[in-house]
């Protein structure tokens, strides 16, 4: 397929979970209907114009980076950690969250010139943030249940995504500081975009047609 003679569908990676449901609902409203049947991870929409791959959130940039999926819906947090170069075609109002530093309730984020110890899944973001602030940081990489770190004494602070704060509250933690807003983006592999820019631009316009979806 080239920009003038489309012959195969645009390939789009979707992250498993709530974001997938939100994206699928957006597509349904725009007349792009598909479903992943019988636990299959690949689906074609009814028009045959789009092929969807259901992938683990953190693997999504890898699929797009290799051009296996030309496009993908992905949170800024995951993109940052991957570090690849992607074209960000648009952001969306759904799926947004915040990257925050948190710790035990009643405390605060304090630094007195020494190294800050932080437990997090987001090691690149955390390192870059603290270095930008001019603070040395020791990072303890965790893969989940990050809230346990301050509770059990692994680290006084965590850097994590906070949406409602319910999990923090349940573990007697609180947000000390919001570090960044995190948005959901439609991304493209740059080479894929160069080949199919006409179809991709038309697709982007279609899903952004109503301002309510921006």
């Amino acid at each position: 397929m080239t920009d003038t003679t489309p012959a195969t569908p645009l390939t789009i990676a979707l992250p498993k979970g709530r974001l997938q449901e939100q994206v699928q609902e957006l597509f349904r409203r725009k007349g792009i209907e598909f479903s992943f049947e019988n636990r299959k991870l690949v689906a074609l929409d009814k028009s045959g114009g789009f092929q969807f791959f259901l992938v683990k959130n953190s693997d999504l940039p890898t699929y797009v980076n290799h051009g296996i999926a030309g496009l993908g819906f992905c949170g800024e947090d995951v993109l940052y950690e991957h570090g690849g170069s992607f074209i960000r075609l648009s952001d969306f109002p759904f799926g947004g969250t915040s990257m925050c530093i948190a710790g035990k309730k009643g405390g605060s984020f304090e630094h007195h010139g020494g190294t800050v110890t932080v437990a997090t899944k987001f090691t690149s973001f955390t390192r870059d943030y603290f270095h930008k602030e001019g603070l040395p940081v020791e990072i303890i990489k965790l893969n989940g249940s990050v809230e346990l770190a301050p509770v059990l004494g692994l680290a006084p602070y965590i850097v994590d995504l906070v949406e409602t704060g319910t999990t923090l509250k349940a573990n007697n933690l609180e947000v000390y500081q919001k570090l960044s807003d995190i948005k959901v983006y439609l991304i493209a592999n740059p080479a894929y975009y160069k080949l199919y820019y006409r179809q991709i631009n038309a697709f982007t316009q279609k899903i952004l047609a109503s301002t309510a979806d921006r």
Binding site: M1, T2, N65, H66, G67, N189, P190, A191, Y192, K194, L195
Partner: peptide, 9 residues
């Protein structure tokens, strides 16, 4: 130069 199926120029 770009070609379909290849992830970069």
């Amino acid at each position: 130069g770009y070609t379909p199926g290849i992830d970069s120029a």
